[in-house]
């Protein structure tokens, strides 16, 4: 079956590639465009490690059709740091030991980024809700919640 062209912005850069018609965005990002930040953990929507932003809204790349992202802006955890400068979420995750194996981290950061973009000063409950679709099997959620709350309190957290 013929491949289809897809053009999108990835972390601010215009990119183009060819995809299988029913290819999930996750495959396109990882295998087509070489952005390995979003991971495969389930392909079912249950783990959240593939969380990306599509036009600013969190979506699960494993369940998103790549062709549906034509012309849209996709952001991943690879684009979170500003060059060598880490985003407050990243420094807070480091400071609070909010990662152990690190496999859930890109998805967690992206979910947290989506939260802070809409709600710069979330309550603890709102943080819990924001990462309720992201599974971490190692770290325990507490350090992650604390890190997100700490990042929200830091200057520049809303920086997209």
């Amino acid at each position: 079956m013929a491949k289809l062209p897809v053009q999108l912005r990835l972390n601010g850069a215009d990119r183009a590639t060819f995809v299988d018609p029913a290819e999930p965005l996750l495959t396109t990002l990882r295998r087509g465009l070489g952005d390995f930040a979003p991971k495969y953990g389930c392909g079912q929507g249950t783990c959240g490690v593939c969380t990306v932003l599509v036009d600013g809204e969190p979506q699960l790349a494993c369940l998103t059709l790549a062709v549906a992202c034509d012309g849209r802006h996709v952001e991943t955890a690879s684009g979170l740091a500003d060059g060598p400068d880490m985003h407050p979420l990243q420094t807070a995750f480091m400071a609070h030991f909010a990662a152990q194996c690190g496999f859930c981290t890109p998805g967690m950061l992206t979910a947290a980024r989506a939260l802070l973009a809409h709600n710069p000063h979330p309550t603890r409950e709102e943080v819990v809700e924001a990462i309720s679709g992201n599974i971490c099997r190692c770290t325990g959620y507490e350090p992650i919640i604390l890190a997100i709350l700490a990042a929200a309190a830091a200057p520049g957290a809303r920086r997209a």
Partner: peptide, 20 residues
């Protein structure tokens, strides 16, 4: 696509056409 794409990813839906 939250249910359809899962079926695609798991190989339960491999033939036919997805209509968007």
């Amino acid at each position: 696509g939250t249910l359809v794409m899962r079926a695609v990813n798991e190989g339960r839906l491999t033939e036919g056409t997805l209509v968007r």
